Structures are given as C-alpha cells and as structure tokens.
Amino acid sequence: MTQVNTPLLVTKGLTKRFGGLVAIDDVNLTVSQGQLHCLIGPNGAGKSTFFKCLTGQFKPSSGTVTLEGQQAQGLQTQEIVRRGVGIKTQTPSLFDGLSVHENISLSALRSQSRAQAADTLEEMLSMFQITHLVRREVGQLAHGQRQLVELAIVLAAKPKLVLLDEPAAGMTGDDRVRLTQILRDLARRTTFIVVEHDMQFIGDIATNVTVFNRGRVFAEGSFAEIMARSDVQEIYLGKEVDVAA
C-alpha cells in the first residue's frame, strides 16, 4: 500500500479535563494521508474521550486539532463533517423508518447532484454487497447489516478522513470479513482513524497503531512493533489479547 506522508490530522498538546479529572493529557498525534490508524488501550485509557474531541462531541480544555493545516478544535460536529470528515460512532445512527436506498441517497445528495448520488448509491451497494437489502427498512436489519449500512452512509459523502468508533463491535462471520476487506481497499484513497478493542481485527487492518494509557500516548508503531513490546503486552493489552485471539 502506497502512503503519502502528508499530515491530514494533527493534534498538539490535546487535553480534556472534567473538573479535577484529566481524561486525556497532552496528546500529540499525526495521521498522514493513506493511513489506517488504530487507537487501542485498556478501558479508561482515554481513547473514547480523544475520539469525541476529534468529532466535536467534546470541546478540548487545551491544545490544538488541525485538519489539513486548518484549526478544528472546538468545532461542532456538523462543521467538522463539512470539512470532509466522516464520522461513525459506536451506536448506529440511522433513519430506521427509511429504506437502505433512502438512507444512502440522502447522505450522497448533501454534496452531489442527483446523477452523481445515483452513481454513489450503486457504488456503495456493490462495495458493501448489500444490493439485496436496498428496499428493506433499516430498522428491520440485523446488527451487522446495520453497521455495514451506516458505514456506507458515511462513505457516500466522499469524506477525506473517516473516524470509526468500534466498527466491528457485534459483527461475526461474513460481515466482519467483508468489513476488513472494504477498509483495506478504501485505505488506498481514504484515511481512517479507528478506535477498536478487537486485537485480531486491528491486526487485519492497521497500518499504524497508537496505544493510549492513562490519558496519554504510551506507544506508537506498526501492529507488529506494538505487539512485540513486552510493556504493551503485559501492562496495557494483557487479557484483551487472549480474549481476541
């Protein structure tokens, strides 16, 4: 996979406090174009808080976030999306009373003509292998199918950067394999930041891994480099490795 080392997202000194609790502390992170960058660490390490600062759900207490060199910290979620960022939270956010066709088309139409949106719909249906679901109401779908449809909705907007919070959660079998292949294929032209607990899934997709602990960045590197470190294995991943294996 060819990567272009152009910073797409950079955080410097990013900190979030809740009263006397420091949830994330002086986080410096650079994500370049073409990366599939996974954020891992034990529960309470600060991953979710960091993700919410990136997505506009939380306003950082201090520090900066830049997207393609432009300041982004403190922006509302919709403003971040308008800058070309796709966001998928852990809980699927879908219009349950509408069909798969309608959900994906509405996303595409926000930035594309009707003809372009129609082409995007067909592209998403084919990519996610969900053409057979196109007329189904989203509220009638199984959990794994809903996860795939929501990712299709996010990608239908043609984002430059996609932020995913536990995209494999609750997936089994074919849906998980399909998601892995889709992310690998898309990473050739789209940049991803993924918060995930499933170590096997991370090993299948990650080009870069950042380990969080106690609100700070503890380690960074490739998946192989991270897994080779005894301090990461013993202190920060521990039983998660065994559970996911």
Results as ranks from 00 to 15, higher is better:
162 V>Q: 01
227 M>V: 12
158 K>T: 09
185 D>S: 15
199 M>P: 03
188 R>A: 13
219 A>F: 13
160 K>C: 02
188 R>V: 08
157 A>Y: 06
157 A>Q: 10
214 R>T: 15
170 G>S: 05
210 T>H: 03
173 G>E: 11
162 V>K: 05
204 D>S: 14
177 V>I: 13
212 F>P: 00
199 M>W: 05
217 V>F: 03
197 H>A: 07
214 R>G: 08
193 I>H: 01
198 D>S: 06
173 G>I: 07
178 R>Q: 15
158 K>Q: 15
224 A>D: 15
193 I>W: 06
216 R>L: 08
197 H>G: 10
228 A>W: 06
161 L>I: 10
226 I>V: 14
167 P>E: 01
225 E>A: 12
203 G>A: 04
212 F>I: 07
220 E>I: 06
165 D>R: 02
168 A>V: 11
173 G>Q: 11
209 V>M: 08
187 A>M: 08
213 N>Q: 12
203 G>Q: 05
163 L>I: 10
187 A>S: 15
190 T>M: 04
168 A>Q: 02
178 R>H: 12
209 V>R: 03
196 E>M: 05
158 K>Y: 05
228 A>C: 09
217 V>Q: 00
182 I>R: 00
174 D>I: 12
172 T>F: 10
181 Q>Y: 08
176 R>N: 10
200 Q>Y: 13
178 R>E: 15
192 F>C: 12
192 F>P: 00
215 G>C: 06
212 F>C: 12
205 I>K: 02
210 T>I: 05
165 D>E: 10
195 V>K: 00
182 I>V: 15
208 N>I: 02
169 A>H: 01
224 A>P: 06
207 T>K: 02
207 T>E: 12
201 F>W: 10
206 A>P: 00
197 H>L: 08
209 V>W: 06
191 T>R: 02
192 F>E: 06
171 M>P: 02
166 E>T: 03
226 I>Q: 00
208 N>M: 13
204 D>F: 02
196 E>Y: 09
166 E>I: 06
207 T>A: 10
210 T>W: 05
209 V>F: 01
179 L>E: 08
160 K>H: 15
225 E>V: 11
207 T>Y: 00
193 I>A: 09
190 T>C: 14
225 E>D: 15
205 I>Y: 01
221 G>I: 14
187 A>N: 15
182 I>M: 09
202 I>F: 03
183 L>S: 02
165 D>V: 06
162 V>L: 09
184 R>L: 13
176 R>A: 12
209 V>E: 08
227 M>C: 14
167 P>H: 07
211 V>M: 03
167 P>M: 04
197 H>V: 02
213 N>R: 01
224 A>R: 09
210 T>D: 04
217 V>P: 00
174 D>S: 15
166 E>L: 09
208 N>T: 08
223 F>N: 11
182 I>N: 05
166 E>W: 04
173 G>D: 10
185 D>E: 11
214 R>S: 14
197 H>N: 10
176 R>H: 04
165 D>M: 01
171 M>G: 08
